[in-house]
Structures are given as C-alpha cells and as structure tokens.
C-alpha cells in the first residue's frame, strides 16, 4: 500500500469509490467495461441502484462465488455475473430500447480522450493495424441521460487524455458531463474543464500541467 501522506492522486479502487458517492439512490445505471465495473462494489450504505448490462439483464449482481458461475449469465465484458432477486432478462432490441430510448439514468464509461466540449473518444485509436470495435458505446452516449467518464488523467506515456479536441475517432460529440480521474473531478462546461475537486496531495497547477485546454479553478464561495 502506498503511504496516504505522499500518494499523489487516487488508486483505481478509490476512483471507483469516488464515482459511487455521486450516483443517486434509485438510479438505473450502465457501467462500461474496465474501471467502471469496479464502481458496483462501492454503493454507499442505504442506497439501491439497479445495474443494466446491455447483453440482456436488468438487475445485475456481483461476481459469483468461485465455482458458482454460469457460462450463460455474463455481463457486457463477457465476465460471469449474478442476477439479483427481482432481475429481468430480455433480448437485445429491448435492451437497447432502454439505452436509446433514454430510460437509463446514468452510464459510466472509460475514455481514450475527452475534449473540453465533452466529445468522447473511447472505441478506436484509428491506427492502421487496429481492429475497429465499437460495441454499445455509441448507443450509450447517444441515449443515456447522463454520461460520466472515469479514467486515468494521462495515458501510460504521460500524454493528456483531457484535450482541446479529440484526435481519435469520436464515440459521440458533446456527450460527457463529468470526468473522474486519479487527480481530480472535473465538469465539462461551456467555458471549459471546470475543476470540482482535487484528489489528496494534488494541486491545481499539477492538474493544469497534465490537462490540454482550459482548466478553470474551483470557484471561491
């Protein structure tokens, strides 16, 4: 474990926990593949959330105990899951009616890049050797009422993921409302990236250096 006095920013688990705090009681939520999947573990006491997985389950529960999984009870990431009492199964057209018809309250997705006007790129680097694979991401950003992004603030090579304009192919234009990174919570606003909260031992300048585009400081009361 890293020392909380010197650790810069949040771990993946802490990021997931931070997002969970902001999800209102009673929400219908779709979690993307990767870090977003961790969020389900951190629902605050007293809240009930219903998880939707686009391959046909509303009321997705946690991972099964070792040896108790079923090959035909899986999530969108094709990992084995469980169904809560009160869950429902349905076919793909119904599942995407929930998504595209605006019936899901919130979706949390990973990102390759987010631009300061809320454009999201998360399905392809557009490289010549890349196998393009979009899954349900474009449907989710087009149809779900609120889109949160959870991502490391910079790439493994240290490049900003919060950018003026996305250089990777878009998943959708102007769709992201809030970004949770290891360094900060940031809202997408007409004026640019609006800092909402800094992670422990992180300064405004530290985040600005790692963000392309306008970063607005937390407003003073």
């Amino acid at each position: 474990m890293s020392d909380p006095n010197t650790q810069i920013g949040l771990t993946r688990e802490q990021m997931a926990k931070r997002v969970a705090i902001d999800i209102p009681d009673g929400s219908y939520v779709n979690l993307g593949i990767g870090i977003p999947e961790l969020i389900a573990k951190y629902v605050p006491e007293g809240r009930e959330l219903i998880y939707h997985t686009e391959n046909g389950l509303l009321g997705m529960g946690p991972s099964p105990a070792e040896g108790e999984g079923e090959l035909e009870l899986i999530n969108a990431g094709k990992r084995q899951v469980t169904a809560i009492p009160g869950a429902a199964y349905f076919h793909h057209a119904d599942s995407f009616t929930m998504i595209r018809g605006g019936h899901i309250d919130l979706c949390v997705l990973g990102a390759l890049q987010v631009s300061q006007n809320g454009d999201l790129a998360n399905w392809s680097t557009g490289g010549p050797d890349a196998i393009p694979a979009v899954g349900g991401a474009m449907d989710l950003v087009a149809g779900v009422k609120t889109i949160f992004v959870i991502t490391q603030h910079v790439t493994k090579k240290g490049l900003p993921k919060l950018v003026k304009e996305c250089t990777f192919p878009l998943t959708g234009p102007a769709v992201v409302s809030r970004i949770y990174t290891d360094l900060a919570v940031i809202d997408v606003t007409p004026a640019g990236f609006q800092l909402v909260e800094l992670s422990p031992n992180v300064t405004f300048e530290y985040v600005q250096e790692r963000t392309e585009g306008t970063l607005l400081p937390i407003p003073k009361d």
């Binding site: 686009e54 793909h92 595209r100 349900g136 449907d139 149809g143």
Partner: peptide, 9 residues
C-alpha cells in the same frame, strides 16, 4: 462495423 444497438434495431 455496426454499433450494437443499431445492429439490434
């Protein structure tokens, strides 16, 4: 390549 929901629809 077709978005999953568009494919279903």
């Amino acid at each position: 390549l077709v978005p999953q929901g568009t494919l279903a629809e």
